[in-house]
């Protein structure tokens, strides 16, 4: 499982970084999106992988920490997901406004000179 999880992070991050290096704003926003998946999974993985151990306490089993997955990275990632959405929205609007003002969707706000 771990190896698949790690490779998944790698593929998401690699695709995201490739898109961050592209010249169009839409590519950039998709890249950010993919990269944030990868980063969220990575942070989540810092609590190590467990199956069937959701951090919802079962009163019958008691509150032994060994029985449950680490809740701290989960709490961090939960807020990160929501903030990620807000950032995407803000970036999208800035992108649209920049395209309206500059007349281009190039990340530099102007078309590069053709060589």
């Amino acid at each position: 499982m771990e190896i698949v999880f790690a490779l998944a992070i790698g593929v998401l991050a690699g695709s995201g970084i490739y898109l961050l290096l592209r010249p169009r704003t839409f590519q950039f926003i998709m890249g950010l999106s993919l990269l944030s998946y990868a980063v969220n999974l990575f942070i989540f993985g810092m609590g190590r992988l467990r199956t069937g151990a959701a951090p919802v306490i079962d009163p019958a089993r008691g509150a032994d920490p060994a029985l449950y997955a680490d809740p701290v990275p989960q709490a961090l990632v939960l807020t990160a997901i929501v903030i990620g959405f807000a950032v995407t929205a803000l970036f999208l609007v800035v992108l649209l406004a920049a395209r309206g003002l500059a007349g281009t969707d190039h990340v530099d706000g102007r078309e590069p000179e053709r060589e």
Binding site: E2, F5, A6, L12, G14, S15, Y18, G45, L49
Partner: peptide, 22 residues
Amino acid sequence: RDVLVAGACGLGIAALAYAVLT
């Protein structure tokens, strides 16, 4: 060039994640 850099970054992150997870 970008594919190479991005691929290397992705591999690196995957390796890092795997190293921590194990």
